[in-house]
Each structure stands twice: as C-alpha cells, then as structure tokens.
C-alpha cells in the first residue's frame, strides 16, 4: 500500500467495484495492493438494494447542486459502459442515525457506499471520462473521512489503468479542489454552451502513477506546476469566452492549481503553456 492523506480510512472502509463481468476482468483487483472486497454486477438481480444506496449517495452529494442521476443514467451511462469504484462499510457497522440518513432497509446486511467515482471509456484507447465523484466526508464528520474524495478517485483511476483522462466541471465547483490535486489540467474547453451550465470547463491530463500517488497523498510523489499567467474570476463569463476563443485558435491553456478564495471571490490560476513533461 502507498501512504495516503488519511490511512485511517482503510481501517473502517473497504473498496467496492460495480462493473459487468467483462469490465471486472479488465480491472486491477488490488490497486497499490488494496484488494477490492466487493464486486457487484449491475446485470444481476441480487444487488438491487446496493444500487438504491448508490443513488442515495449521489442525491446526498449532488441534490443541492441540481445534477442528481436517475437510476437509468447510473445503469446506461455508468455501470454498463464503465465502472463505479468506491469505498463502503458493512451495514452492521452503521449507527442508527447513519442507517436512517442513507435510507438503508432494516433487513439489509451488505455493503453501504460512502464514496464513489464513475468513469466511462472514450474512443481513444486508455482514455476515460470521469463524470461523478461523490463522498460523504462533509455529511458524516464523526467518521473522519477527510480526503476520501481524492483517495477514491486516485484508486479508481489506478484500478482501471487510465492513461489519459477527461472531465468536465463548473468553474465555481468545489470539486476543482480535488481535481487539481492530480496536477496541472489542460483545458479542452473554457466555456461550454453544449453543457447545461455553460460556465463549465472540460479538462484533460496524461495520467501517470506519480500523479495518482500525489493526489492520494503519498508524500514521496511531487507534482510540478507552472506559474500562473492570469487569474480567472470564476464568475467572469467574458474572460471564459475569450479563453475559449484562444483554445479554438490553437492556444494551449492549463489550469495550474486549485481555486483561491478571497474577498468573497473565487479565482483560478491559468497558464498559457502545457504542463511540464514527465519522464
């Protein structure tokens, strides 16, 4: 095992993988030596309650932001083409409050998910698109689940051998604090009218083991970051559109670090260059 930001997580939580039999065979069963405890096939009837609990986890995470997933989206745009990797604990380990909070049926005795990461394959071999990262870190503070989101994403990407990675999120999203732990992010879009929220960026990066270990919290793994050339205000649509114009004209742009909040504003560091190459 690698050291992480929160090794104590592994004393109470174990990994699960939701994927079809074909997809399971493509996954590393023990990324960095951490064995996956539960495999749940979305095409088998007996796991129905677990899929209800995944939807509950999604609702608790994204409900207030207005992008929760229906079960058909889980099945048709996550479990069937790709995978869901996350951390869970046995229902018997939950408190009475936690069982109620998660809507766990009284008779249920299986795993209860506290985090999940969803990715689906892209047309290019080795490329994946991540479209959901959920964690109950903030909702269950007494569990001390700090860094559960970034650890979940790092182990998930390791399990499926991602070589290049895409994602889309909003410039205002707190998720960027997690995504930027994986190093500088190349921008594919800076303003995205095809998305429900046009103030969305599409980002990409070449994945290597050091980046994943750094995001998980291994102090031996370091990430080089270029200096920013400009700071984008997360509510500045005009600048997003101007940056999008630069991208479409062939300019390379990189989000080089996490958001910075000050004076009631959120700003994001941008460089007009590629991330530093790795060997």
């Amino acid at each position: 095992m690698i050291p992480t930001h929160n090794d104590a997580l592994f004393t109470q939580l174990s990994p699960f993988l939701v994927a079809t039999a074909d997809a399971v065979s493509a996954a590393d069963p023990a990324p960095w030596g951490l064995a996956t405890r539960w495999h749940l096939d979305p095409q088998h009837m007996r796991h129905g309650t677990f899929f209800e609990l995944l939807q509950r986890l999604d609702q608790l995470t994204f409900g207030p932001e207005g992008m929760p997933m229906d079960k058909w989206v889980f099945y048709g745009a996550a479990e069937l083409p790709g995978f869901i990797y996350g951390f869970a604990l046995d229902a018997a380990q939950l408190t009475v409050y936690e069982r109620s909070f998660m809507n766990v049926p009284d008779a249920y005795t299986g795993p209860v998910p506290l985090s999940m990461y969803i990715a689906i394959p892209m047309r290019e071999p080795g490329a994946w698109f991540g479209h959901n990262l959920a964690s109950l870190n903030r909702q269950l503070p007494e569990r001390r689940l700090a860094h559960l989101g970034s650890i979940t994403k790092a182990f998930a990407m390791k399990a499926f051998g991602c070589r290049s990675f895409f994602g889309a999120t909003q410039w205002q999203s707190n998720a960027l604090f997690i995504h930027t732990k994986f190093g500088p992010l190349g921008l594919a879009t800076a303003y995205t009218p095809a998305h429900s929220i046009p103030a969305t960026l599409t980002y990409t990066f070449a994945v290597d083991d050091a980046l994943l270990r750094a995001a998980a919290g291994d102090p031996a793994a370091l990430v080089a970051r270029p200096a920013p050339e400009l700071w984008l205000d997360a509510s500045d649509i005009d600048t997003m559109q101007a940056l999008q114009g630069e991208l479409e004209a062939g300019q390379r742009l990189t989000l080089v670090g996490p958001p910075m909040d000050a004076g009631g504003r959120r700003r994001l560091p941008i460089a007009r260059r590629l991330p530093i190459a790795r060997r």
């Binding site: 997933m69 745009a77 996550a78 689906i120 698109f129 479209h131 895409f166 998305h195």
Partner: peptide, 13 residues
C-alpha cells in the same frame, strides 16, 4: 439532461 448528453455521449463517444 444536458450534462449527461455532454459528459456521457458527446465527449467520450
């Protein structure tokens, strides 16, 4: 939904 159309159809496929 638009975000599903973008994240799960247009960009990966």
């Amino acid at each position: 939904p638009s975000w599903v159309f973008y994240d799960c159809a247009v960009v990966p496929g």
